[in-house]
């Protein structure tokens, strides 16, 4: 982008140099936003249907599920961890929530004779179970010292196994109308998008305006230093992973509401989409660096890409290749940014 011009034109005027430096700083910091804007402009030129209100809401709705997971992932990766289990946790919390949210007369009813539950029951169940599974992740990492990659890899397999056992391999469907209304709209706004927005706001406050948020950065930046300065690392790690698991539960509720059914094989590979969104958004795997707006932009980059490639009729095999390349390019840009900072 406009990087070269600054090096070439040596201005004697300090003020204009400052301005340019500020511009470069902004470009570096918000580079991924420009990538997103360029993508949007490019796709809307090639497909006139892209920038219709209906399609914009489609992109946002389609991004909501892995977008919500990416919020928790941002906290986790910022703390220098990773969570490979969120896709499986979504499936397990999803099938449990769905089993509690079936209509009274559902065929293949999971709990026979169970009356129709108010929506709050499956919602609480999914969030609580998600937080519980996440806290096991955090506890394993904090107290046994095994790497997050391994702990959550184990949980990924265990949670998927439980989802299969719980359901016997078949999807749980026939959800109550109040449950599936979560896939609908309030006015023109899709409810998944509203839930996503609320999750973004809460997570933003949590990360930026609370002691817990400061601890996340401190642990990711330097665990030893954090410990010395009085941060309870173990407790905070459990909280971080529990929050990530709880958000997987939120994503499960959105998933179930939107799809009207949860399959024990649901969301396979979504953990990687969430990690990709987080990484594209500039959260550093070296720890200590990560932003919520970045996670949102990262999710939108993937959402716009998937939607756009379909609208443009790009071959299914090529879509995967393009998606992979975008992730790599985004991280290269991001690493240059962080390297310059140091």
């Amino acid at each position: 982008m406009a990087k070269e011009t600054s090096d070439q034109t040596l201005t004697s005027n300090d003020q204009s140099r400052d301005k340019k430096q500020i511009a470069i700083e902004i470009l570096k910091k918000y580079g991924i936003v420009f990538v997103l804007i360029l993508m949007v402009i490019g796709i809307s030129f090639l497909s006139p249907r892209f920038l219709t209100p209906n399609n914009i809401f489609n992109v946002l709705t389609q991004s909501a599920i892995f977008g919500i997971m990416a919020l928790g992932m941002t906290l986790i990766i910022t703390s220098k961890g990773i969570d490979l289990s969120v896709g499986s946790v979504l499936a397990l919390t999803g099938v449990v929530a769905a089993s509690l949210g079936q209509t009274a007369m559902a065929n293949n009813k999971y709990f026979e004779g169970l009356a129709e539950m108010p929506l709050i029951v499956p919602v609480i169940a999914a969030l609580a179970l998600g937080a519980f599974l996440g806290s096991i992740n955090g506890g394993l990492i904090a107290y046994t010292g095994i790497p997050p990659f391994i702990a959550t890899l184990g949980m990924m397999t265990v949670a998927r196994g439980f989802a299969l056992i719980y359901t016997g391999g078949s999807p749980i469907s026939n959800l109550t109308s109040s449950f599936t209304s979560l896939g609908g709209n309030i006015g023109v706004f899709p409810i998944p998008v509203i839930i996503y927005a609320v999750a973004v706001a809460i997570t933003w406050v949590l990360l930026n305006n609370t002691r817990f948020g400061k601890n996340v950065y401190a642990i990711g930046g330097n665990v030893k230093a954090a410990e010395v300065s009085g941060v309870n690392v173990k407790k905070n790690l459990i909280m971080i992973y529990a929050y990530g698991g709880m958000l997987a539960g939120v994503a499960a509720i959105v998933f179930a509401g939107r799809v009207g059914s949860v399959h024990p094989g649901a969301a396979t590979g979504y953990e990687l989409t969430a990690i990709a969104a987080t990484t594209i958004g500039g959260t550093s795997h070296a720890g200590g660096i990560g932003t919520i707006w970045g996670a949102v932009v990262g999710a939108l980059v993937l959402g716009v890409l998937r939607n756009g490639l379909t609208l443009l009729g790009v071959d299914a095999y090529w879509q995967q290749i393009v998606e992979g390349m975008i992730i790599i390019v985004a991280v290269i840009i991001d690493m240059r940014k962080n390297a310059k900072k140091k």
Partner: peptide, 17 residues
Amino acid sequence: NWQRDQGLSLTENWLTA
């Protein structure tokens, strides 16, 4: 990928396209 949610998203996009 055999999944209901992905069938849903793709169809939404096809309806747009």
